[in-house]
Amino acid sequence: MDPRLQQAAKSGSIDELYALIDENPYILENIDAVPFINTPLHVAAASGNIEFAMEMLNLKPSLARKLNTSGYSPLHLAVETGHTDFVSWMLKHDHSLACLNGRNGMIPFHLLVVRGNVDLVAECLLVSPECIRDVSVNGRNALHLAVVNDRYEVLQVLTGWIKRTMQRNAFKNEFCFLNKEDFSYNTALHLAAQKNDLQACFIFSSAFFFHT
Rank of each mutant, 00 (worst) to 15 (best):
L191E: 07
L28T: 08
E51A: 05
L57E: 01
D182G: 09
M1S: 12
L158W: 03
L145H: 13
Q199M: 12
E123T: 14
R140N: 11
T187Q: 05
P108M: 02
N179S: 09
S206G: 15
S47N: 08
E130F: 08
A9G: 09
E181R: 11
K195N: 10
D32K: 12
A45K: 01
V87K: 03
R4Y: 09
L28N: 06
V79D: 00
E55I: 01
K60V: 01
S96R: 12
V154F: 00
F204K: 01
K195P: 05
V147W: 02
A33M: 10
C99F: 01
F86T: 03
E174K: 09
A53F: 01
L75H: 08
A207E: 04
P3Y: 03
E181M: 11
A45G: 09
T84S: 14
L112T: 14
S136P: 01
E16Y: 04
T187S: 15
N196Q: 13
Q199I: 14
A193R: 08
N149G: 05
T159R: 01
V121R: 01
R115K: 15
A9E: 05
N30V: 11
S73G: 07
E174F: 10
V127W: 00
E123F: 08
T212N: 15
S128V: 08
Y152G: 02
D15P: 06
A44F: 00
G12K: 03
L63D: 00
E23H: 10
N196V: 06
D134P: 02
I203R: 00
Q194I: 13
